[in-house]
Design a protein around this nucleic acid. Sequence first.
DNA 1: CACCAGGGTGGTT
DNA 2: AACCACCATGGT
Length: 219
Amino acid sequence: MVFADVFERLREQHGSQESWWPAESAFEIMVGALLVQRTTWRNAAAAIERLRAGRQLTAERLARIETAALSKLIRSAGFFRVKAARLQKLAQFVLSVGGIDALKRLPTDELRTQLLELPGVGAETADAILGYAFERPVLVVDAYTRRLFTRLAHPLPAPTDTGLKEDAIAALGSTQRLNEFHALVIAHGQRCCSPKPSCERCTLKQICGWDRDRQTRLA
DNA sequence: CACCAGGGTGGTT
DNA sequence: AACCACCATGGT
């Protein structure tokens, strides 16, 4: 109930979010999911464009390039040394299983388990890859999602990640709607509910939970 | 100048 | 299980 309601109201406020994660292949989305960690999409996209321009945006090339050379290409995404090593592990993994097409045939649970074994792939990145690269019906729970639903629940306890995922899948159903929901939550978090002042500028305060706030720190 | 961005990991209490 | 430091660039 809550999810479908929030979804509609976020859409009213921010508009539909189609093709929010632009990419030309599933592999490119996997690369982007690692590069965007704790950075802006702008900086991650610049790194992807440098990889593309250098013709390194394939599993074959990323698996073979020197780590130092790779880290220079992705410099703009930050944490470039750790991310370079992680990208190479990802590329090697894709090659070892027989390519992206082999991964597309795996059941969602099994695919998720294998993704989580990769260095640098935690719950959020795994779900982003599942949802956007492989179009599986999952919810990406990130810091924006937790903040929003913690505020909505206030003063009740914050919902758990697994609870949010189950409810979202039950309420929204399709991969397309789940992905758009995630995009809407981020658009809302970026344009409206900033971390610190807690929704001073929000035009739909009911969504942020600002109107039910009791001077408590909600971030 | 401080703060933040579409996290994950390893170590400490 | 809850914290903590660390990774590092680029925009505001």
